[in-house]
Amino acid sequence: MQFYYHQKSGSKNLTIDGQTYKHIFKIRRVDKNQKLNFRNLNDNLLYSYQIEDIGKNNATLLLIDTIKTNIKPKPYIHIAWCIIDPKDIYRYIAILNQLSVDKLSFVYCAYSQKNYKIDRDKIEKLLINSCCQCGRIDKMKIEQFDSTRLFLDSYQDSYILNFSSNTILNHKDTIKTILVGCEGGLHKDEINMFKTDKIVGLKNQNILTSQTAVVTVASILSN
């Protein structure tokens, strides 16, 4: 853990319980004299606490230091991901967060199964845990659209990943938003919604799973 999360981090006193308490005192068996670092993931401050009291199911902490974290400039990455089986989405959320994707938009495209529902509370927990593990100080933002058309109405300059000799590497510095299809890709009517120069491909011409494609795109754009 690079730090722990508490929504009230920054308060003079913190009371921790539940899974955070269990991890610190039951699993890591932290000594009472050890300093604990917390973030609230809403600002760029790291809050250091000392342990005042350890109870049977909770502990009380006292704020002793606040350190500002300088945020280094990085490319803005917004990926739209056509909805696939939520179980597969949950497996890859942390990876996209670690790759510094700023925003992830879920889109019900023509080939998405409409009965798939995204558990936003579960994603929130996965993102918080990912930030604590990798040290990211702001969570990836999440939003959702009911169709490709509605998505494009909001992001008219979006690119789309498809088979094309016009590779994503040629546009790496200009892509701010890009749509990645689900299993089976995108319907031809959806592809036709995009301008020809906004359709980009990969040098790898193998057929990728949606999960592999979205991680590949994030990796290229983040480096």
Rank of each mutant, 00 (worst) to 15 (best):
D102R: 02
D157N: 15
P73K: 06
K117P: 01
I64G: 05
I51F: 07
K74S: 15
Q113Y: 13
D157Q: 04
D157L: 02
P73V: 11
S105H: 02
Y116V: 01
K122N: 10
F145T: 02
I54K: 01
Q133P: 07
A59V: 05
C109G: 12
E143I: 03
D157G: 06
N58K: 13
I51E: 13
Q144L: 12
Y47I: 09
R136F: 10
Y155T: 03
I51W: 08
S48C: 12
K122V: 06
K103E: 12
K122L: 15
K103D: 08
S105W: 08
A110Q: 11
S105V: 07
R120V: 11
K125H: 12
L152Y: 14
Q50A: 13
L150S: 15
Q144P: 04
I71Y: 01
Q98K: 02
E52F: 14
K68D: 11
K56P: 12
D121S: 12
P86V: 03
K56T: 14
Q156R: 03
K72N: 12
K122W: 14
L150W: 12
L99G: 04
C109S: 15
R120C: 10
I83R: 00
L127R: 01
Y47H: 05
A110H: 06
I67M: 08
Y49A: 02
S112K: 02
Y155N: 08
E124G: 03
K103H: 10
I84C: 00
V107D: 09
S105F: 13
Y111Q: 01
C131D: 07
I83S: 01
V101Q: 07
D53S: 09
P73C: 05
K139S: 12
K117I: 14
Y90L: 04
I71G: 00
Y47K: 00
F145I: 10
I95A: 06
N57D: 13
K103S: 04
N129Y: 07
A59K: 06
A110S: 07
Y90P: 07
Q113L: 13
Y108S: 02
I95G: 08
N58P: 10
K87V: 13
F145K: 00
T69A: 13
I64V: 13
I118K: 00
N115F: 14
L150V: 10
T60G: 02
C109A: 15
K125W: 11
K125Y: 11
D65C: 04
Y49Q: 01
S48W: 11
A110P: 03
I54W: 04
